[in-house]
Simulated scan of single mutants.
Amino acid sequence: MKVFAVGTITTPPSPEQQQQIMSKEVPDTLQLYLDGKIEQFWFRHDRPGVIFLMQAKSVDEAKLAVDRLPLTEGGFMTFELTPVGPLAPLGRLIQK
């Protein structure tokens, strides 16, 4: 299953907190990518945060993965998770 995980910074960390947290956040995020849990990732331009396209067995599995990231664990970021799939109504356009 594919899941969009839209992360928003809710409480910006102080510069000192940011230095400490990001030294863990980046490797942890890259590990999720290398493990195949994050397929693509983007930086948000509308507000501080990220968007991940994730591969997971369930929304709960995706939530567990993003909840373990340091920014989320520290209460600095929240994620909205949305399961997505093929655009099924397009099947009506195929004549069989």
Rank of each mutant, 00 (worst) to 15 (best):
residue 34 L to T: 10
residue 18 Q to N: 03
residue 17 Q to L: 14
residue 48 P to S: 04
residue 57 K to Q: 06
residue 51 I to M: 13
residue 67 D to E: 15
residue 71 L to P: 04
residue 20 Q to A: 15
residue 62 A to F: 06
residue 30 L to K: 07
residue 26 V to P: 04
residue 61 E to Y: 07
residue 42 W to F: 11
residue 59 V to P: 05
residue 14 S to T: 14
residue 63 K to M: 06
residue 31 Q to T: 11
residue 59 V to R: 03
residue 66 V to M: 10
residue 19 Q to I: 11
residue 57 K to P: 11
residue 46 D to C: 14
residue 34 L to Q: 15
residue 20 Q to R: 15
residue 49 G to C: 12
residue 34 L to S: 14
residue 44 R to Y: 12
residue 28 D to V: 02
residue 33 Y to S: 09
residue 51 I to L: 11
residue 47 R to C: 09
residue 6 V to R: 14
residue 36 G to T: 12
residue 73 E to L: 00
residue 42 W to G: 12
residue 74 G to I: 01
residue 68 R to H: 05
residue 50 V to H: 12
residue 69 L to S: 04
residue 61 E to A: 14
residue 46 D to G: 13
residue 56 A to E: 02
residue 37 K to T: 11
residue 12 P to F: 02
residue 39 E to A: 05
residue 23 S to G: 06
residue 66 V to N: 11
residue 7 G to F: 09
residue 55 Q to S: 12
residue 46 D to A: 14
residue 65 A to Q: 06
residue 61 E to P: 07
residue 31 Q to S: 07
residue 69 L to D: 02
residue 65 A to P: 00
residue 37 K to Q: 08
residue 23 S to Q: 13
residue 65 A to D: 08
residue 19 Q to D: 08
residue 28 D to C: 07
residue 62 A to L: 08
residue 8 T to R: 15
residue 58 S to Y: 01
residue 15 P to I: 10
residue 21 I to P: 03
